[in-house]
Design a protein around this nucleic acid. Structure first.
Lengths: 215, 215, 215, 215
DNA sequence: CCATAACCGAGACGGTACGTCGCGTCTTGAT
DNA sequence: ATCAAGACGCGACGTACCGTCTCGGTTATGG
């Protein structure tokens, strides 16, 4: 599995019309590749426009013409590298969820991603617009895919309707990110699978409702 | 509830001997307070030694004598402000867990903490020693307290022995941090409580074991 | 006296064949005029292709089709504006030399020339081919004319044969350029005349030879 | 003979008082050396603050704290490297002049100097203050020394009083600079000596006066 | 008359170098 | 040995503007 796959590059700033020298599209590709390579072996805080430009064998203005800030480059790179999430549909909730969670777990085997995420999220605090883009394209994309899996299961009758969807979605994905941020435990496919099972258990027995009815 | 309560300042760099002009201990307190105040309204990336010194009404050398880097100051501040976790022991797992999770949730109501965490974790990648300190004093402290809660429950027979402890600990806390990092949903005591319940359900029915025995 | 007189424009890059849209010859004239006007009131370092194109009311590509670099435009302009030197021949060395020197002195009354020369000479260091062209068309042209004046005088018997021609040629012209470069003294026709006289004196008494015979 | 000798560095911007970190004086030395080395093998137009900083193994701000512009660095470097002129006084005009002229000729054997001069003079057009400094410290220093030689000769009776001093000073030095700028002939000590002799001849026979009395 | 070809202006591009900000460091003089 | 003050060295920034390139349209010549 490689990170450089899925989607063709979506230009952040589309050229207005048909005049002037066209952009060297190879710069876009080299830039994203440079970001990934740099993050592989160096911390996010050492990532600079200058370093990306040097590694991509281009210049800062060329990058800045495409992205207005360093977090912008990183957001683009991650979206580009990780692509939008797909919605598995095998007809079995458990299987679908495991597929999705495993993909996320695989993602974290790339140090580029784990190195980038915390610093990027921190930087995005200063740029709501960019944050919105990242959340939408990366986070919501995955969350919505998982949501669709649950909804499919509900419509099949595998899971009853009354679940707290938002919390459920958190419970599935959170442990993986938690481990990615604090690094206290490895992130494996097995962990992904166990998280999924634990969540399904919680839903199935529905203790929450029972507990509060009793209370 | 205030963040500035718990522990007296533990000098990160112990004074060598009893000679020369003694340190102004009020500087330590003013520095941590300054960090918290600055983080309340500004992003982590804008936090600098200079800004802290100015806010604490002292000089950069005075800070540097106490901490060797900016992340060092922040780590100290967070440990100082949040203090070590206590282990509740009411004789009811559910209750104990809810107490602990709620405290964490309360913590995140302070923007200083949510602002600081991602950036700090990112910076700690470059300083393993400091990272070790933060993980031990902040993270492990809370995790160990929760672990004790579970062990108490096991010894009381409330929970059977065969649980996957590490994953279970993750499942309890992860959703709160997940929401803190991505900010997609609010962090409330109710969420904390529901997470706890979901985890307890998962343990109780123990589908994991069943699923794999069948397989 | 104007600088824009002498020769018709000699195309530096000759058109390959008689096909395609012919060049707008007025652009050549407007470009050289633009260079002179710009240099009149602005330093050489502020002279750019862009500025020339704007002043000449044309485009950068149009200029670049004619000259491969900015120094190229300036060299062309100076050669065009100052023209090749003529060889005065009144039958009197002194008079001939004064005529030639005065013309050079007149040239320096145009700030365009004094502004351009040092910077141009500096730039030509990076372009030997262009330098060769400038030296040949501008410098050698004048030097050869003066040399012809001396040779005529020798053949007339006005001056004896044994002079150091190269040094003599330097002595006549150098003071004018010296003043143009350092600007420590004005450049007038009188200075030109005095330089000439001094040189003729030096030759006449021929102390050099005497001194070394004695030595 | 080396260029790096004469005077101790005179700080262009003297430190105001005794507080703050003192300047690293080795940077001054490394900067001037870097300029000379760069100019030895590259044209003036390729000399940039960035290149000087890199060669001197320092940073642009460190240079800019010392000199406000690139020409400023070059002016300093040349003054530092070439030093102020001394006034020879052997009791013989001819000898004194030859000594002075030969020193100038020697100077031009360093390509750094010949590479720098035209471009520097061109740049100084935009900075009258700096120009004034360069003319005073470099040009006037040499010119005044030569003037003193002539005045000594006059007071000794070697040369009569009525000479045109300014023109005479030009005649002595101009040929060397002329050759330096146009590079059409080599600059040797012999040329220096011959120029001197020619000038002394011109003065001695005083043809100027004769010519005009006749006219 | 149409095809060819080099021209034209317009304008965005890639890149060098700039001048500056602001960091963490270092030194001084006094406490 | 501490304190405040403040200049320093330097990494990185964000930008200006250079010369280059590409475009769509224009204008002559040649078949």
């Amino acid at each position: 599995m490689t990170l450089h796959h899925l989607e063709p590059l979506r230009q952040p700033a589309v050229r207005p019309a048909g005049q002037g020298r066209p952009r060297d599209t190879s710069i876009d590709a080299r830039a994203t590749e440079a970001v990934l390579e740099l993050l592989e072996s160096a911390p996010y805080s050492s990532l600079t426009m200058e370093a990306v430009a040097a590694k991509a064998d281009t210049s800062k203005p060329a990058l800045r013409r495409r992205w207005k800030s360093l977090p912008g480059v990183v957001v683009h790179t991650l979206i580009e590298a990780l692509g939008p999430a797909e919605t598995p549909d095998t007809g079995c909730v458990h299987c679908d969820l495991v597929i999705g969670a495993s993909e996320v777990a695989d993602t974290f085997s790339f140090s580029s991603v784990t190195h980038a995420l915390p610093g990027l999220l921190s930087d995005l605090a200063s740029d709501p617009e960019l944050r919105e883009l990242f959340i939408r394209e990366y986070f919501d994309s995955r969350r919505d895919a998982t949501r669709a899996v649950f909804e499919n299961a509900i419509s099949r009758g595998e899971i009853h309707e009354g679940i707290d969807m938002e919390l459920t979605l958190d419970l599935v994905a959170a442990p993986l990110y938690y481990r990615a941020f604090f690094g206290h435990q490895p992130i494996t496919r097995e962990v992904a699978e166990r998280s999924v099972l634990s969540v399904l258990n919680g839903i199935a027995t529905n203790v929450w409702k029972a507990h509060h009815q009793a209370g």
